[in-house]
Design a protein around this nucleic acid. Structure first.
Lengths: 217, 217
DNA sequence: TGTACATCAGTGAACGCGCGTTCACTGATGTAC
DNA sequence: TGTACATCAGTGAACGCGCGTTCACTGATGTAC
């Protein structure tokens, strides 16, 4: 059982090239959108021949799948870092916004327009649960009681997604609202819908966040 | 000044074909996404030769621009119908959700992942204002007072987008929250992020809506 | 340390494909007298 | 109503392009003895 043996130079190199391919892929997505992602174009940018990339990825679809997984992983790690540092919902919210502003393409790859026919890789549902668990923990740890609302009774009957979390339905509701409301502000901000409006999106985001937390006052 | 003279058969035909092209375009977007939109494929479906489409649209970009404008127009009309029927925020919300569920591709063309480098046609900003005006009217007409919140003071200084509406900043805030929160729920619902969760998205939407309106109680 | 072999990264040619777009043309429809 | 001409929808060939992907190959790097 000597699995994690030292990496050979070749393995190291392979990892580096795979990483560079992904980097260029993100650049390309930032420039022309995910649908314009082209293996040949990436190869040209790296200074390789198109077919060379097939040593590293099975094909275009494989690369995209990898990017989607990385995006999920990246977001979950950003939230996880905050979570491990003991952050509550407010800290998680700012970690979310910070990550989204830093990686808008990745954010949209997760939450943007779905591509008909494309099914997200299995792994992403586990990561989504992981993130939801952090949210539930954060809200469950909040002081005070969350007043129950009509939707909670419906939620109580449909909580198969809670990962076995012991929190009450009102807390699930809070976590859901956190997700949908912050996504609402963030996605419109990132898509530029506030650009011509003049107000500061960060303040709207904070206002939404305050509103979510005010329930516990 | 006899502008609206009767349409000749040729004009009528032209209008029909332009409409059919758009219909097929939407079908194609529903099947493979907006980025896969191909003039040649549309022509084939209609039973025409590729180049024939150039009699009706200047090119691919022109067609897409037309689709974007139609999407905005369609949403504004759906809201406008409710508005003219005297609907308040609740009616507008349901008109919004109804339209979005009926035309998810159009919804995403408006609010989905932005394509880097693509600039929405001028006309859309006017339509966006038109929709915002309906929201402002609806909230302004609501009975009761909207309690002021911290963000309102910032908004009061950045309301160039209000179209000259006389409502106070608290009302602008309400309209903004209406937009971002309902979009948050809707876009996640349409993208399928709730699919495996089991609860009824309509109820979550209603819960968010109730929450927006509860402020006035 | 040196040689023989295996592994593997990367190349260049080639495949078929569908794309947007242009062009010169045909034939049908509409208009003017 | 009939003829002469103008308008316009649609065709088919052709353009250059970039795409994903396969294949047989070269040459460098690593491994075993």
């Amino acid at each position: 059982m000597e699995k994690p043996r030292a990496k050979t130079p070749r393995e190291r190199y392979r990892v580096e090239v795979r990483a560079e391919i992904k980097e260029r892929a993100w650049e390309q997505i930032a420039t022309a959108g995910a649908s314009a992602l082209s293996l040949n174009a990436i190869a040209k940018q790296i200074g390789m021949s198109g077919p060379a990339l097939y040593r590293y990825y099975a094909g275009r679809d494989d690369l995209i799948t990898e990017l989607v997984k990385d995006a999920y992983r990246g977001l979950a790690d950003a939230l996880g870092e905050a979570s491990r540092a003991g952050a509550g919902p407010e800290g998680l919210a700012h970690a979310l916004r910070g990550w989204a502003l830093k990686h808008p393409q990745r954010y949209f790859l997760i939450y943007g327009t779905p591509v008909p026919g494309y099914h997200a890789p299995e792994e992403t549902v586990a990561i989504a649960s992981e993130m939801m668990a952090m949210l539930l923990d954060a809200f469950a740890a909040l002081p005070g009681d969350s007043p129950s609302r009509p939707f909670d009774t419906h939620l109580a009957d449909h909580r198969s997604w809670d990962g076995g979390h012991p929190a009450g339905a009102a807390v699930l509701h809070e976590a859901l609202a956190f997700w949908t409301r912050l996504h609402g502000v963030l996605s419109l901000e990132l898509a530029g819908h506030f650009d011509a409006m003049g107000f500061d999106p960060a303040r709207l985001f904070q206002a939404e966040l305050d509103d979510l937390l005010a329930r516990r006052a």
